[in-house]
């Protein structure tokens, strides 16, 4: 049986205690909320923190508060998010992205904050210590080479969070709290395109909440690519939010790709193509092409990378057609294998 390495467990009741304890030794302390990301990694010895701070007992980290904007505690489970009528009615794309994460069991455990901080993934990295020894380890853990592209100076592990690209497209911000203070960071600024330093969150910071601005006038959607109807992390995704006028002309657009880089990847070019236009087939095709250009999938996930890159075009096209009002239910069902 795969077992956890030894660690000291601490369970604060307040955010204040959590960040205080975190500050004691931020580099060898890790936070655990649902445990669905960290614990497998610890069992495979990808991470071996001396101290684990459990966040489950911090009541202030959970809950969804809806006024004009939507404020979601980072410790809110993905199931709670999916069950929230406010989330579903105000930002359908976020609901769709959360509903497609992993499995029902893992959504019962995993949290929104955890999904945002999800470790980047790579088939050279998400392996046991024994397996990684057999390849001489990799840059992200205990080694020096990135085997995905041996000449690469940086780690090419893939951003595999479903919610981050969507929250980025929704213009969300997160609150990061440390013993030194509190700061608001746009989700767009939470990530680096680096498989190792993929978060701009400092090691002493706790992500406490996610704030989604008023979505009046906006519509959003999330399209995910994965092999099976369940379990699988995204290997490509399109998260799109549009604000349109009464005539259907796009006023504002956010197009963000998931799982094709070490961070959620916006396509400003696709956004620029959309703004000022109605969603004609030509406009959609041009935007999909622009999104295709920024996708840089590598050979470190399921499916072949060339095909995955091509699929970005399809995902963006499907998303935009759906936002236009096309009946995409059959296509959706074929790809997602669940009603969304």
């Amino acid at each position: 049986m795969m077992r956890l390495p030894a660690f000291t467990y601490r369970a604060p009741r307040t955010v204040g205690d959590a960040v205080l304890w975190l500050a004691e030794s931020p580099t060898d302390t890790m936070l655990v909320a649902g445990g669905t990301d960290l614990l497998p990694n610890m069992k495979r010895r990808q991470q071996t923190p001396k101290t684990v701070i459990g966040l489950k007992g911090i009541a202030e980290l959970t809950g969804i508060r809806a006024s004009g904007h939507l404020s979601i505690g980072a410790g809110t489970t993905l199931t709670a998010l999916v069950n929230s009528a406010d989330v579903r009615s105000r930002c359908l794309g976020l609901w769709q992205s959360a509903a497609q994460i992993a499995t029902p069991h893992l959504r019962n455990m995993g949290t929104l904050g955890g999904n945002l901080c999800l470790d980047t993934r790579c088939t050279y990295y998400d392996q046991t210590e024994e397996w990684r020894e057999a390849i001489g380890y990799c840059m992200k853990k205990d080694g020096t080479t990135c085997w995905v592209a041996t000449s690469s100076k940086r780690c090419l592990a893939v951003s595999s969070t479903d919610t981050a690209p969507m929250l980025l497209a929704l213009g969300a911000t997160v609150t990061l709290v440390s013993a030194k203070g509190t700061r608001e960071v746009a989700v767009a600024d939470l990530y680096n395109n680096d498989g190792m330093q993929y978060l701009t969150r400092r090691a002493d910071e706790l992500l406490t909440s996610i704030d989604i601005p008023d979505q009046t006038g906006w519509a959003s959607t999330y399209w995910k690519l994965r092999r099976r109807g369940s379990f699988d992390f995204p290997v490509g995704a399109a998260a799109i939010a549009l604000k349109r006028d009464a005539g259907g002309r796009v006023e504002l657009a956010r197009v963000v790709l998931g799982a094709v880089a070490s961070q959620p990847m916006p396509s400003p070019k696709a956004e620029a193509i959309l703004v000022g236009q109605v969603l004609s087939d030509d406009v959609i095709a041009a935007a999909a092409e622009a999104a295709y250009d920024v996708a840089k999938p590598m050979d470190n996930t399921d499916f072949e990378l060339v095909w995955r890159k091509k699929m970005v075009r399809t995902l963006v096209t499907n998303a935009l057609r759906e936002l236009r009002g096309d009946d995409m239910r059959a296509v959706r069902m074929s790809l997602a294998k669940q009603v969304l």
Partner: peptide, 28 residues
């Protein structure tokens, strides 16, 4: 079947909800 949250064999109910016991810390 995997102890990594990849198969569902270890599912139990905690407070009536299905969770994976392989990824649940006993202390919690």
């Amino acid at each position: 079947g995997c102890e990594l949250g990849e198969c569902g064999a270890c599912a139990i109910l905690v407070n009536g909800e299905p969770v994976l016991s392989c990824l649940a810390l006993a202390v919690e």
